[in-house]
Design a protein around this nucleic acid. Structure first.
Lengths: 121, 121
DNA sequence: TATGGTACTAACAAATTTGTAAGTAATGGG
DNA sequence: CCCATTACTTACAAATTTGTTAGTACCATA
């Protein structure tokens, strides 16, 4: 993302929480508008940049790049560049990201159930 | 939070994702800086507003109120007001929020593991 | 009448995230 | 030489979230 201001209350709060709460830490790593959507698409197979872009409705190339870069830095996706022209790059889940799959499956079920509950008031 | 602008691309994207992806929907419900921290504190017992404030380092009364209000609206916490002076209000998890507990326990473990992995490069 | 405790609310400002629009590099094919 | 293709980058602007500061209501007690 854009660089963050050092020593803002905002950043200090976030850092403190991330250190002291593993759960919040985990959620931060997969938080943001697009990350989970991207990870889901990669659940079954590796995909090229353009395949991701086309499968995710509404995402811009800028956002896709930003999210992928962060997740690469965080060890959630592996990026492979092929020395071809035009360029070819693909992305896949790392081992630790794959460990999330059963968890997000449960979360997803919970979400579906909650959505129905709320819609009934 | 503050009211959101209607029909901004931002809002439209969010709405679309929330509808089409139960997982992102779920994460949004418990996303934001403070929500999970609050929910965790309520895992074992109901707490008063001031107890929450004191147990959560760095949160302001404004933020605590905002997050609690949203979670109340989303059916994650139950708010009970006692007709006393000075006022007394307490908060507890709802049934559907309690269903999240085993899930967030796993996520938390994942977070702890990931934190170590990343710290080793 | 002034003070204190609790759970807030309101107005504003700062920080961060997300979106827009345009451009870049490299190279094969026409 | 010009164009197309792919995976990006850059500069900027808009929207949203988070933080700051000061206040409110209520009544019991001093």
């Amino acid at each position: 993302m854009g660089k963050r201001k050092e020593n803002s209350t905002n950043l200090l709060n976030e850092s403190y929480i991330m250190e002291s709460c593993d759960l919040t830490y985990a959620i931060c790593k997969i938080g943001g508008r697009w990350k989970l959507l991207i990870l889901c698409k990669l659940e079954n197979r590796k995909l090229r940049f353009s395949e991701l872009r086309n499968q995710i409705n509404g995402i811009t190339e800028r956002m896709l790049t930003l999210q992928l870069r962060e997740m690469e830095k965080d060890g959630l996706v592996k990026r492979t560049v092929y020395a071809e022209v035009p360029p070819r790059v693909d992305y896949e889940l790392t081992e630790i990201a794959k460990e999330l799959v059963p968890i997000w499956a449960k979360l997803s079920k919970w979400g579906a159930k909650h959505k129905i509950l709320v819609s009934e008031f």
